[in-house]
Write a protein that binds this DNA or RNA. Structure first.
Lengths: 149, 149
DNA sequence: CATATATCAGACATTTCTATCTGAATATTA
DNA sequence: TAATATTCAGATAGAAATGTCTGATATATG
């Protein structure tokens, strides 16, 4: 199977979008998120804990507890979320799996893949949670997809 | 971990490049390929069998046996190899993992990711084994990387 | 203060991917 | 024809990713 993000990373991104679409500052619990987005609850819990450790989310235990954004959504790029879960190996590792692959000793796809990888990085680095949150607000389709009101 | 191709697909692509750089029509055995490219031999065997089943390689048992390209290298796009090993789900599946994601019901990254995915596909579909084979012939660096003479 | 509700931490289970093993089938060569 | 070298097929093993369970800890609320 070829893919870009691990399943755990997909869950993290989905949950971030869901949380970002809530009333700012409100804590959202994983029970609600896992039901709405159909993500296994304990696994989602572990996943969001990673985001808390990376200061992307903050959490509160107990009744009315849950998760909220730890900073302004305009300061959270998608790349931060991907980095917290999957890391950044994809930026440097060889697309063909050659252990030594660099500008000096490139693999046959090095050049072309480098260009595509840069575009992916630019997109992840430039797109913030605030950007997407606005898109969601403006689009009924997106609210439906995220099972929002 | 985020990646594009499975490890098995990386092995397949590496082996295809190695085979394509050999004298045309000559059978190359997996013992040689696995040693040169540092790929586990039994796993490489299973992998190349998939390419034989897809008519990308042809094989011969017995002494002097091995694998060779099943057709002209200009007719084998990288995409065919990827398709044989990893399949084509990445062309249609949602980058955020939403089960239903299409132009009509897009996820927040649908548009931007679509463009990048198309570029990846174009690259894989346009680039043939012959193209890369030529690059390898013309570059001492690449011959070194593939452990060729 | 007691109770209920949440995250959190660590162990455990399951599934998927990667890797190995064994022997059968087939072709070359002497 | 015998010996050898190779792919091929199927079973098994190991590793990594995903998913589950149990209980501890913290917080809100009556």
């Amino acid at each position: 199977m070829s893919l870009i993000f691990s399943r755990q990373c997909e869950y993290a991104l989905q949950a971030m979008l869901y949380i970002s679409a809530q009333e700012p500052g409100k804590f959202t619990n994983i029970n609600e998120i896992s039901e709405r987005l159909d993500i296994p609850m304990p696994f989602l819990g572990k996943t969001l804990q990673l985001l808390v450790q990376d200061r992307i989310l903050s959490s509160l235990k107990g009744p009315r507890g849950g998760f909220k954004l730890a900073k302004d959504p305009s300061e959270i790029a998608l790349f931060h979320v991907v980095d917290a879960i999957d890391g950044t190996d994809f930026l440097t590792s060889c697309v063909l799996g050659f252990p030594e692959c660099s500008t000096k000793t490139p693999c046959p796809m090095h050049q072309e893949w480098g260009g595509l990888r840069d575009r992916v990085f630019q997109m992840l680095a430039n797109k913030t949670i605030a950007d997407i949150s606005k898109e969601i607000t403006d689009s009924k389709q997106l609210r439906t997809k995220l099972k929002l009101g």
